[in-house]
Simulated scan of single mutants.
Amino acid sequence: MNAAPLPFLPDAVIFDMDGLMLDSERAITDCMERAAAEAGHALPRSLWLSLVGTGEQACREILAARLGEPGAMAMLDRTDVLYEAMVEAGIPHRPGIVGLLEWLQARGIPRAVATSTRRPLALRKLRRAGLLERFDAVCTSSDVEQPKPAPDVYLLAAKRLGVAPARCLVLEDSPAGVRAALAAGMLPVQVPDLVEPDAALRKLGHRIVPSLAQAQALLEAAAGACRLAP
């Protein structure tokens, strides 16, 4: 893990959603595995993990290459049915998210969501989880031309918050999200969930912490350094 001190207290913090704030990466992966098994497809766990953090179109293309277009579409349709039931029940929070959001709000630091999920589903998931009202902006793959790892959704979030990208800190769990944040010129802190960063990702030199509580500790230290500065 790389938990070097932050170089500054950010003017805004932008959050990924799935796997970072909500335990939805695990939920959707379980749904895909179940749908594949029901259809008689024996696919490795590594395939599902490779889809974490990618956009919907990329997922469809990867699965179509393995199963053919009809098989992939049928499996994804069944996945949607299974996942819809989980969304309606309310996807659990990742540990530490509420405390971190409260800390930022108390200090007047703007907050946005930047997610690869389509807008209607993203809003519903955040609302059902009781998190929607804690954000100043929600940016989704519906709002941009290119999903992560392209920087589009992060640049849009900065624009909507009125903050320069270089002054934004991004919290991400996935490799695609980290690359998107770096491409946007932002400061990423990765909190891995299902996928641990490999050697190639670690070479990017970004900060990696084991939990949102550790990410909050970095922010608290940066805030303390600001108070001590002459």
Rank of each mutant, 00 (worst) to 15 (best):
V195S: 01
P188A: 04
V195D: 00
V153S: 05
G177M: 13
A164L: 13
A176Q: 15
R167Y: 10
P175S: 06
A184Q: 04
L194D: 10
L187C: 13
V189N: 09
G185T: 04
L156R: 06
R160C: 04
R179V: 06
A176I: 09
P197Y: 09
A158L: 09
V163H: 11
A164I: 00
P165W: 02
V153G: 07
L187N: 10
K159F: 00
M186A: 07
E196A: 15
L182C: 01
A158W: 02
R167L: 11
P192C: 13
A166E: 15
L187R: 07
M186Q: 09
A180K: 03
A181T: 03
A164G: 02
L155K: 07
P175F: 03
L156I: 01
A176K: 12
Q190T: 06
L182S: 01
D173E: 14
V153D: 09
A176D: 15
R179C: 05
C168W: 13
R179T: 08
A176E: 15
L182G: 04
R179P: 08
L156P: 02
P197H: 10
V195I: 05
A183M: 00
L182A: 02
C168F: 12
L171P: 12
G185A: 02
A180N: 06
P165N: 08
L171D: 11
G162E: 11
Y154P: 02
P192A: 12
A181Y: 04
C168Q: 14
V163C: 12
A176P: 10
E196N: 00
L161G: 13
V178C: 11
V163A: 13
L187S: 11
V163M: 12
Y154D: 02
A164M: 04
K159W: 00
P192I: 13
V170I: 15
Q190F: 03
V170S: 05
G185C: 02
R179L: 12
P197Q: 12
V153K: 06
R160N: 07
G185M: 07
V163K: 12
P165C: 03
R160V: 04
Y154K: 01
L194S: 12
A176V: 08
A158G: 11
R160W: 08
P192F: 12
V170P: 01
Q190V: 10
L194A: 10
L155F: 12
P192N: 09
V191M: 07
L187W: 11
Q190I: 08
A164D: 14
L156D: 08
A183S: 01
K159G: 09
L194W: 13
G185E: 03
A181L: 04
R160Y: 01
G185W: 00
R167S: 14
G162C: 11
V178Q: 05
E196T: 02
A183G: 00
L171E: 11
S174G: 07
L187V: 08
E172G: 05
L182M: 11
A180L: 06
D193F: 08
L161R: 10
R160T: 07
V189T: 09
L187H: 14
P165F: 06
L161F: 14
P188W: 04
V170W: 10
E172M: 04
